[in-house]
Simulated assay, not measured.
Amino acid sequence: MNRQRVVLAKLGLDGHDVGVRLIGKHLVDAGFEVVYLGKRVSTATIVAAAVQEDADAVGLSCLSGGLGHFAALTVAGLRRAGSDVPVLTGGIDEPAEIDRMMAAGVHLHFGPGTSMTEIVTAFQEATSGP
């Protein structure tokens, strides 16, 4: 059985990557292959990496605001590239921005305090197919 591949990245100016790196570790422990792109990654870079890596899901994190904006751009870029992989997000933004990214096609959003078990389960479900 092939391992599911997830691309993780930090968006915008956010340099706090402990949480996303911890999520990556838990995903690896759950059997995922994780490609972590690092901090302050552009949406174009995320899209290109997801396509190149044949990702099964993309995980985006931002705690400094702008998550809704960048997540919507990432989803749009993936769709233009012919990819329909689910995009899961975590972080902080204004409620209207979270609504905006969900309307733009983000699969699921996690706010502060979401357990690792919930996050890993969500990635498992998102990548398991129909």
Rank of each mutant, 00 (worst) to 15 (best):
N2C: 02
N2L: 07
N2Q: 14
R3W: 00
R3G: 09
Q4R: 15
Q4D: 11
Q4Y: 08
R5K: 15
V6A: 09
V7D: 01
V7L: 08
L8C: 03
L8Q: 09
A9K: 04
A9N: 08
L11G: 04
L13T: 13
D14M: 03
D14W: 09
G15H: 11
G15C: 03
H16L: 02
D17V: 04
G19Q: 00
G19Y: 07
R21N: 15
R21A: 08
I23W: 01
K25E: 09
H26C: 10
H26Q: 14
L27H: 06
D29S: 09
D29E: 14
D29M: 02
A30V: 00
G31P: 01
G31N: 05
F32N: 02
F32A: 11
V35E: 04
Y36G: 04
Y36E: 06
Y36A: 04
Y36M: 01
L37R: 11
G38Y: 05
K39N: 09
R40E: 13
R40H: 13
R40W: 03
V41M: 10
A44W: 04
T45S: 14
V47R: 12
A48F: 01
A49C: 00
Q52T: 13
E53Y: 08
D54Q: 15
D54T: 12
D56G: 14
V58A: 06
L60N: 13
S61W: 04
C62E: 12
L63M: 15
L63A: 10
G66M: 07
L73Q: 15
L73T: 10
L73D: 15
L73P: 03
T74P: 03
T74N: 06
V75W: 05
V75G: 09
R80C: 05
G82T: 06
D84K: 06
D84Y: 00
V85P: 05
P86A: 12
G90D: 06
E94D: 12
P95D: 12
A96H: 10
E97N: 13
R100E: 09
R100K: 11
M101L: 13
M102S: 14
A103T: 11
A103S: 14
A103F: 02
A103P: 00
A103Q: 13
A104L: 04
V106N: 06
L108G: 02
F110W: 05
G111E: 14
P112C: 08
T114G: 07
T114Q: 10
M116S: 00
M116Q: 08
T117W: 00
T117M: 06
E118T: 12
V120H: 12
Q124C: 01
E125A: 15
E125W: 00
A126L: 00
T127H: 13
S128G: 01
S128V: 04
S128C: 08
G129N: 08
